[in-house]
Nucleic acid binder design. Structure first.
Lengths: 263, 263
DNA sequence: CAGTGGTCTAGACCACACT
DNA sequence: GTGTGGTCTAGACCACTGC
């Protein structure tokens, strides 16, 4: 196999070979492989928790060497989209595993480790269909007035209400989501999204501020009016950087803290 | 070679010794190379901003192939300890570069991008030598009463005081640090630590809470008493996970927010 | 035992930056 | 042109998992 940007034509290279636009900028083979794997993931060819084909299989399929496939998979594993397990295979990452339960929940008890309190008690306050306001539409890449699902829930640790979250989801991909299904489901909400709606959250961006408890927050979190709370606004993305969730959370930080690692 | 720790002598490529050692659990060659590079970095053999030897040089020096050195460097680059630049070489990462100015400062203006306000105005309030309290000693891995330097400063953006920080440093490695040197220095404080004290901050852990403005915070940040502020407690580490700084910051989050990426 | 990912090698060639 | 990192290959062998 040569090092030409596009592999041989006899197979099915999903990358356009024809019109080389203005700044082709050179795309190495392993990036094209990575892109094709990403497409398969997005299309649900392999579902969260399942194994993808072995490196040798993929190398044969794409007509490249094992090393090239390997580098593509390395990239995807570094982005937490795949998980390698020596001797077993390479698996599509999932939010259902115990290991990664707390990858997106950075709130840690003042004493103890993440999860040492056991699973949070969850109470769904509401779940309804509404029209997207301007900011919700902007965050989810919709148009103002588009249908969205809006849910509110409270998370409690050892019987202390600690987190209030308002969640907005585009109605189309989450058709059929109800308060009942949210309430009855065990495990992380993102795991339910995977199994029930084939939506896997891949990354998220958060904006964090300190804000006083107002409105209904005081009662729901059982704190005094004006108590400083951590305001966490999150936009979560699926594959290909498509925004699929807006979440506004208010965290009590008297018993917990938000942990972050800089490197 | 499996458990053979160092190939230091002449060539001794991957030959398994066969000794069924108990727990060492097999350290691949590239990890040993990585560890040796880490030692060189810690000892200051190559300083921040400087180039390290080429991959071929290192391969010769360690009697391994270029690919093995490459994997070791890849790891260190992924940890932001080294920076690769195609056609030029591999360089020791530094806090003095424009690129990474804001890698440790996650506060972003509500409108605009990180750094779009230009550099922060810095005002050193004080810098003095004190005895480590219990919690400071614990954070810096010292004993209670050990000498530490304590500094306080205010960062302002467009003439608005936004951040108040209290900083504790072990006195020994930072011998000679004064308020004057902090005040007169241009650029990030961590860059000064690199050039003047040969201390490079490699990673940090932060605990974030929402707290009301009390004590002297109100005047220094010019906010009303009780205004919610973001409390950011950071421990910064050099190579080999040695803690070298404790920092307690209070951020105003009316004009800025703390940005975080989850993945 | 076979199959998987993990390590290591030696060599070739490409893209980039300097001189 | 020379030297750097970046890509790709083909093959060997090791470590781990499960049949």
């Amino acid at each position: 196999m040569s090092t030409t940007p596009i592999p041989s034509a006899d197979q099915s290279p999903a990358i356009s070979a024809g019109a080389p636009s203005l700044a082709p900028s050179f795309s190495p083979l392993y990036r094209q492989i990575k892109s094709m794997l990403l497409n398969s993931l997005r299309l649900g060819e392999w579902k969260p928790g399942e194994a993808i084909p072995s490196e040798m299989d993929l190398a044969t399929r794409f007509h490249v060497s094992q090393g090239t496939v390997r580098k593509a998979i390395d990239d995807l594993a570094a982005e937490n989209l795949l998980v390698r397990r020596q001797g077993k295979g390479t698996f599509v990452a999932t939010h259902a595993e115990q290991q990664v339960q707390f990858r997106f929940l950075k709130l840690v008890p003042n004493s103890g480790t993440p999860g040492s309190e056991g699973p949070a008690q969850r109470e769904i306050i509401q779940c309804r269909r509404v029209s997207a306001s301007l900011d919700v539409a902007r965050a989810l890449d919709l148009r103002t007035g588009d249908a969205v699902l809006q849910a509110r829930r409270v998370l409690s640790f050892v019987d202390t209400p600690t987190i209030l979250e308002d969640i907005w989801l585009p109605a189309a991909p989450f058709k059929g989501l109800t308060a009942e299904r949210l309430t009855n489901h065990q495990g992380p909400m993102y795991a339910l999204f995977e199994t029930e709606f084939n939506v896997r959250m891949v990354r998220a961006e958060e904006k964090i501020r300190a804000e006083p408890a107002t409105d209904g927050l005081e009662e729901l979190l059982k704190v005094d009016r004006g108590t400083p709370l951590l305001s966490v606004e999150r936009i979560a993305y699926t594959y290909k950087d498509i925004p699929m969730e807006l979440r506004r959370g208010y965290y009590r930080t008297d018993t917990h803290y938000y942990h972050n690692r800089l490197s």
